[in-house]
Write a protein that binds this DNA or RNA. Structure first.
Ligand SMILES: [Mn+2]
Ligand SMILES: [Mn+2]
Length: 338
DNA sequence: GCTGTCT
DNA sequence: AGACAGCAACGCCAA
DNA sequence: TTGGCG
């Protein structure tokens, strides 16, 4: 039975299955040789999650999860899962959260510890997406399950980030190849910088990461006191101001057909129940690329495929978490008009 | 990947 | 015992 | 109320 990370790593190296002792709890892992990505197996996923656990766990903590699962890898069925209907292991933290559609509470998973992280890997969660609000009370209500009113009055209605999901527009190319071009990404970077400047003028510091696919995610840490509706209103103002300035390059148009080559700023992500790929989460794409934080002055020098499951653990050896301390950073937004 | 059901 | 089927979002907004 | 959207 393995105990520390070094030993866990050694145990995961060989055999098609193993029983891990993760901080005192027993966790069975199976099908370690099953390919989940081209040239990458479930063993590679578990070793990756173990290697980045110190980096990713602080960002997963207390946040309801949305999982992208591919039990048979990229060649098999893919599904998004937000609820867990059966009883998860004891060590997995959960929250019962009311959902509008089903008119009842569902069980959401929260990844608060290494055992849960590895268990998610065993369950072929190739992507881990998190909410922007947390279940921690800190003065707010924690009745998430009773009714729509109760969850709207709860801590989950108060995000600690404002987010901007920046997606590249269609790239017009004769070949029909839909992969991201340097030109398209460079246009995206330009929009991100312009948005950063807008935010800075308003006194707001922002951080940026690759989504792990083609886009960028901008994060503005905020005081945990504005309901999603207000955060969305502010995000929309910033997004529309960029569109007004550069209507040929930026759009907030929801219709895909209308967007064309323009960069899409999705401010609508600022809503309860929505999620973005967590920083350091792998993505279910052939290259096994990873969502990775970028320093603003490095943005021109990088490309999303620079960060994948193979090299990210190495990059993190220099600095365990590029966004260390982010969970406690807070900025004020304009007040809500009364 | 897991669970419950059918043969 | 083994095969197999079923299963696994949700909130916003414009129309 | 529905359908598109991410
Ligand atoms: Mn995106
Ligand atoms: Mn998007």
């Amino acid at each position: 039975m393995a105990t520390d990370a070094q030993h866990l790593s050694e145990v995961l190296q060989t055999g098609n299955e193993a029983t891990l002792d993760v901080g005192g709890v027993s966790l069975a892992v199976t099908s370690l040789d099953k390919p989940l990505w081209p040239h990458r197996t479930k063993r590679d996923l578990l070793l990756y999650l173990l290697a980045v656990s110190q980096s990713i766990l602080p960002h997963l903590r207390s946040r309801p999860l949305t999982m992208v699962r591919l039990p048979s890898g990229l060649g098999g069925k893919k599904f998004v899962q937000r609820h867990w209907d059966h009883k998860p292991p004891e060590f997995v933290r959960t929250a019962e959260i009311y959902t509008q559609d089903r008119r009842r509470a569902e069980t959401y998973l929260i990844c608060d510890n290494l055992a849960t992280l590895l268990w998610l890997g065993q369950n072929a969660c190739l992507e881990l997406h998190t909410w922007y609000s947390r279940v921690d009370a800190e003065g707010y209500g924690t009745n998430f399950s009773e009714s729509l009113e109760s969850v709207e009055a709860s801590a989950l209605e108060y995000p600690d980030f404002m987010v901007f999901d920046l997606d590249p527009g269609d790239t017009v190319r004769a070949t029909g190849d839909k992969s991201l071009t340097r030109e398209s990404f460079s246009r995206l970077v330009g929009v991100a910088k312009a948005l950063r400047e807008r935010l800075a003028v308003a006194g707001l510091n922002s951080l940026i990461k690759t989504s792990g696919k083609s886009g960028l995610h901008m994060i503005v840490p905020i005081e945990r006191k504005y309901p999603f509706g207000w955060v969305r209103t502010i995000a929309e103002e910033f997004a529309r101001s960029l569109v007004a300035e550069n209507p040929n390059i930026v759009t907030v148009e929801t219709s895909i057909a209308e967007r064309g080559e323009r960069v899409y700023i999705d401010y609508g992500q600022n809503a309860r129940g929505k999620s973005l790929a967590c920083v350091y989460s792998p993505r279910a794409v052939p290259g096994a690329t990873v969502s990775f934080p970028i320093e603003w002055d490095r943005l021109d020098a990088v490309f999303p495929t620079d960060f994948d499951m193979s090299n990210v653990p190495k990059l993190l050896e220099q600095q365990v978490d590029k966004w260390k301390g982010l969970p406690s950073e807070r900025q004020a937004l304009p007040p809500i008009p009364s």
